[in-house]
Design a protein around this nucleic acid. Structure first.
Length: 302
DNA sequence: CGTCCACGTCTAC
DNA sequence: TAGACCTGGACGG
């Protein structure tokens, strides 16, 4: 998603930082952004956030005030709430800072009413992210694996035949390690192996799907205790990682160029002619962080 | 300096 | 199913 947990943590971050904070004035877009202008301009408003899967929604809620009428004559005031739906691309995140600490690549900015003011910024170095003013959750996206687990299960149930036909267990590779499944089994073998292990017809799939749900929640619980991208303590997350850049783990790049991490046998569908690499902690010791950086951007699940 | 990598959509062949 | 869209950090010579 970037990773469902990140998006959810971003919404927690916004709610935490913006609780009780009053914002004011126009919403400002950077020069270079190609995302739409946000025509919202309000003397006093609040910001709250929620997440669903790979999207975050900000809700701007005007606060009624006595001097409303006066102001209205100068600038067109927005008096209705507005939802803005964000997708994070590869590098999006929110930061709440003083005005002179607004991060480079802060492409959409919300200013507080106080002096000196502070700024909530949507930061996105690569600009693969986007936002939609007056947006709604994108209707054709799959359910959220963290908070719409039931419908996620039923959707997967409906698509299981297709998954068995065309896919490999690597679709679920983040969870294979936990279940002791080689990542490059074909899906049928993976599921049959699980079923044999679990002795229930749907049990194997159920277990896999449950991990799709619970593993991201584990990440959220790690980050939930004071999520601030700058101050976050990496060690907890690092210790939690079981695979990604962990000593002794192997990785292969699949045909899409995506790196898969695993241990032991890669399985029969492993890409041929590709080198399997073994992680040594030396690369990491210099940076003490997985690539992807300071912002806990890339949660590699497992 | 230059090359590789991060893996999220969206569009065109 | 490539390729495009982008930046920047790690690493190599």
């Amino acid at each position: 998603m970037p990773e469902g947990p990140e998006l959810h943590l971003a919404s927690l971050y916004v709610n935490k930082m913006c609780e009780g904070v009053v914002f004011s004035g126009p919403v400002v877009k950077s020069e270079v952004s190609k995302s739409p202008d946000v025509s919202f301009n309000c003397e006093s408003y609040r910001i709250t956030a929620s997440s669903r899967g790979k999207e975050v929604k900000l809700t701007l809620t005007p606060i009624k005030s006595d001097d409303d009428g006066k102001r209205r004559s100068k600038v067109t005031q927005t008096d209705q709430p507005m939802d803005i739906v964000f997708r994070f691309g590869m590098s999006g995140y929110f930061r709440f800072t003083s005005e002179d600490e607004v991060p480079k690549h802060g492409h959409l900015r919300f200013y507080t009413k106080e002096k000196p003011c502070r700024v909530l910024s949507f930061v996105d170095a690569r600009r693969f992210g986007s936002w939609q003013p007056n947006g709604t959750w994108q209707p054709d996206r799959g359910p959220c694996i963290m908070f719409e687990y039931k419908s996620f299960r039923s959707v997967i149930g409906l698509q299981l035949t297709i998954i068995l036909k065309i896919d490999e267990s690597r679709r679920f590779f983040p969870f294979c390690l936990r279940l002791n499944i080689p990542p490059f089994l074909c899906a049928r073998d993976a599921l049959e192996g699980l079923e044999a292990k679990m002795k229930g017809k749907t049990q194997g799939m159920g277990d896999l799907l449950r991990l799709c749900h619970t593993v991201p929640l584990e990440v959220v619980s790690l980050g939930g205790k004071g999520y601030d991208p700058e101050k976050v303590d990496y060690s907890a997350f690092q210790a939690w990682l079981q695979c990604y850049y962990v000593d002794g783990m192997k990785s292969v790049r699949d045909h899409n160029g995506r790196t898969m991490w695993f241990k032991g046998d890669p399985g029969p569908m492993a890409p041929k002619g590709k080198k399997t690499r073994e992680s040594t902690r030396e690369r990491k010791s210099s940076s003490a962080q997985p690539p992807g950086g300071k912002h806990l951007r890339k949660y590699q699940l497992i």
